[in-house]
């Protein structure tokens, strides 16, 4: 049964990705992209990588997509943007992604209700991941932290000029 659930999640991921990249409206595309990331998270969970699934939801679907939402909302300020946002709230546009997300939630509940748990006989636990991360991969962690720091400095540099210039007029 879990194999069937896995293929359903894979189909949802592919369909949501194709739908996301063929939209013309950026906000609709973001909703489909979030559904696609959630489907990939379900796939991770079914493959016995619960920590990766949690990170996928928290960081990808949570933090990174919220950055996209912030920027899209910043770009259409004013009355025209407000009218468009009211139009976005019209029910038709979020029925399909909503039902996709509900299907994924149903899959998760089925898997969690199952006594055997995940699909894989040997799930890789977060403890093992952490020990590997701070053991042989310690140098990679340091490099990743420097990458994040440079990303932070770059984003601040680009965004600061934007905010200061906007305040002038």
């Amino acid at each position: 049964m879990i194999v069937v659930l896995f293929y359903i999640a894979a189909v949802i991921a592919l369909a949501a990705t194709v739908a996301a990249l063929t939209r013309t409206n950026a906000t609709h595309a973001l909703i489909y992209l979030i559904v696609s990331l959630l489907a990939v998270a379900v796939m991770f969970f079914l493959m016995g990588a619960p920590f990766a699934a949690a990170l996928e939801v928290v960081i990808y679907a949570g933090a990174i997509m919220v950055l996209f939402v912030f920027v899209i909302m910043m770009l259409n300020l004013g009355a025209a943007g407000e009218a468009r946002e009211r139009q976005w709230l019209a029910g038709r546009s979020w029925f399909v992604p909503g039902s996709m997300a509900a299907l994924l939630l149903l899959e998760m509940l089925l898997v969690l209700g199952d006594a055997h748990g995940v699909t894989s006989g040997t799930a890789v636990s977060p403890k093992v991941v952490g020990m590997t991360l701070f053991g042989p991969y310690l140098l990679a962690v340091e490099i990743a932290s420097m990458l994040l720091l440079s990303g932070l400095v770059g984003a601040y540099h680009l965004g600061r000029r934007f905010i200061v210039r906007r305040g002038d007029h």
Partner: peptide, 13 residues
């Protein structure tokens, strides 16, 4: 995460 932060800063610019 780093790529998106810098990329969206570029979008604003």
């Amino acid at each position: 995460a780093a790529e998106v932060a810098v990329g969206l800063g570029l979008v604003l610019q």
